[in-house]
Design a protein around this nucleic acid. Structure first.
Length: 582
DNA sequence: CTAGGGTTAG
């Protein structure tokens, strides 16, 4: 009898398992259980539950759950785990609450799942409450729970709390290290991420591929090519197998650190790539202005049978915009909808406006904007349109666009600067003053621009008019001399209206000591002939600096690569890779 | 009987 029953159960179990994560087959299997009278078996129901969750049907999962009269801890754990794992994070939290209400004691498995769900939703308050349950349950020193908590606090934008959990761990698993590094990186704290990475190595913990993926992202933020190359050597030397995630991080790092050649080398070393890797390569070419190469990679990717997605199209359209490939961009935009069924989102719209704008088709850009719904008129669309107005000197339209921009996002100080610039360019100086007053009134401060440059494995940071550097005098003298030489070669300072609060000589002074110029001067002083300068700027490069650096590249016969907020500028022999469209 | 964890890419 026992043997027979086990055999029957096993057959039923097999029926459920073989249905796999497919809703209709699971429903058939369930119906079969009802017919054979096995529908009250907890074991089978638990299996059915996790599979229906995996099938993506939370509704059916809930129905199955309701059919269980007295769920046990096993069932709750499976349910919370599955719903958290397959993206039904809110349900995971609700099931957790139900579990507590049913007076079932959570385990470490329950906690890891529910904390992950809170992390995915950035539910800081609820996650913190769960953390208190962790303390009460006595699991505060469980390494799995701790790693989950670190990731949770980081994803809830509280990296300092994550660090507190991390610091209080006597023994740190590699995942805890990785969570902390990635947590800093995701919060834009690249230096802190690198600092933890160094500490990890001091603690003799061997980094794995997940570690490197996060550190490479941090390196991309910093734009430090030397550090990136060193990391690359580390990875190769460590014997870690190159997987597609790691390769993608490398491609992205090399691109964002200004060495698209090395990005390309990593890309071509991979035999198999998925859509993410291909997209990274397209995006890398695009941000350096290599539109033709980006399109080539895009076509090759399609020929290989890799299906482009929404992110791929952002990369392709952005590459077209930055390289002036308007006809290509138009046809890609059409095929995106028609052939691939990708619905254009705000990011694609921004690319199109940008592309028309840069390409000199101001009217077409504006027609495109006017064709959008009101909820699609996000700040980025207005910013792109504004760039087009500025480039084509249509200041009246520019003023209108800038006013729309402020209405769309009144709390962003950068927009006021743009509006004020437009007023100045349109000759409405009275308005310039009033915009400034509004900014003061609303307590908005202009974002401080800064530039960094690496020399001898050290990173140096400059901000406008900065005098904190020990060699300030030498740098300023060198720069003055350099500017004179540029002026002899034909350079004329471009007045920037962002400096509207300054007049005459004072204005030129502020302009002359912009952070990127200081970084360039410093780089020239500290490196030998033939060494390429690589500078990273947090904001967009201004027109005057762009012009000055073109002259510097000619006068000093140096290649200078500047990464600004949007793209790369390769200055060489007096011209820039962006063809002065940026 | 039923499952089993936390970190990583465009």
């Amino acid at each position: 009898m026992d043997g027979k029953e086990r055999k029957i159960k096993s057959a039923e179990y097999e029926a459920v398992v073989s249905a796999g994560p497919h809703l209709r087959r699971l429903q058939q299997a369930h119906a079969h259980l009802v017919v054979t009278g096995c529908h009250r078996s907890r074991a089978l129901l638990t299996k059915l539950l996790t599979l229906s969750c995996a099938a993506g049907s939370i509704a059916y999962t809930r129905r199955l759950f309701r059919s269980v009269s007295d769920p046990d801890s096993f069932l709750f754990n499976s349910l919370i785990k599955a719903s958290s794992k397959f993206g039904f994070s809110l349900d995971a939290v609700l099931f957790y609450r139900r579990m507590l209400l049913s007076r079932i004691v959570p385990s470490t498995y329950t906690f890891t799942s529910v904390i992950k769900a809170c992390a995915d939703l950035s539910l800081l308050c609820i996650g913190t409450l769960v953390h208190s349950h962790v303390f009460v349950s006595g699991y505060a020193s469980d390494s799995f729970v701790q790693a989950a908590l670190i990731a949770f606090y980081a994803k809830s934008c509280t990296p300092r709390v994550a660090r507190k959990v991390f610091d209080e761990m006597p023994q740190r698993s590699i995942v805890a290290w990785n969570s902390m590094i990635s947590g800093y990186e995701q919060n834009g704290l690249a230096n802190e991420a690198v600092e933890v990475f160094n500490k990890m190595r001091e603690s003799r913990v061997e980094p794995d591929s997940a570690t490197f993926v996060s550190v490479l992202s941090a390196c991309s933020q910093l734009g430090s090519l030397d550090f990136g190359c060193w990391l690359h050597d580390c990875i190769v030397g460590s014997g870690i197998t190159m997987n597609v995630v790691l390769a993608t991080s490398l491609v992205n790092m090399f691109s964002r650190c200004g060495d698209v050649g090395r990005a390309r080398a990593v890309f071509y070393s991979m035999i198999e790539g998925n859509v993410v890797l291909w997209t990274a390569m397209i995006s890398g070419y695009g941000m350096h202005g290599y539109g033709v190469e980006a399109m080539e990679v895009f076509h090759r990717m399609k020929a290989r049978g890799v299906v482009p997605n929404s992110v791929t199209f952002v990369a392709v359209l952005s590459a077209c915009a930055h390289a002036g490939l308007i006809d290509e961009g138009r046809s890609v935009f059409a095929s995106m909808k028609q052939e691939y069924g990708v619905v254009p989102g705000v990011e694609h719209h921004v690319c199109m406006v940008d592309m028309f704008g840069r390409g000199g088709l101001l009217n077409e850009a504006y027609q495109f904007v006017k064709g959008l719904n009101s909820d699609e008129l996000v700040p980025a669309v207005w910013t792109a349109m504004l760039g087009a107005c500025k480039m084509h000197k249509n200041f009246d339209l520019g003023v209108e666009v800038a006013e729309n921009l402020i209405n769309a996002e009144p709390e962003n100080p950068g927009h006021y600067v743009l509006l004020s610039n437009m007023y100045a360019l349109a000759g409405r100086m009275d308005r310039v003053e009033s915009v400034r007053n509004v900014m003061i009134q609303r307590g908005l401060k202009k974002q401080v621009g800064y530039s960094t440059i690496d020399v001898d494995n050290r990173s140096y940071l400059f901000s406008m008019g900065d005098k904190s550097h020990p060699e300030t005098n030498e740098i300023y003298c060198f720069l003055d001399e350099l500017i004179w030489r540029c002026k002899d070669a034909g350079y004329a300072p471009v007045p920037e209206s962002a400096m509207h609060e300054l007049e005459g000589e004072e204005r030129e002074y502020a302009l002359r000591y912009h952070s990127e110029k200081l970084a360039v001067a410093f780089g020239l002083m500290k490196t030998g002939d033939g060494v390429t300068l690589r500078i990273v700027k947090n904001l967009r490069i201004c027109e005057d600096c762009h012009s000055a650096i073109k002259f510097i590249s000619a006068v000093m016969n140096r290649e200078i690569i500047v990464r600004d907020k949007l793209r790369f500028h390769h200055f060489r022999e007096g011209s820039c890779s962006c063809s002065d469209y940026w």
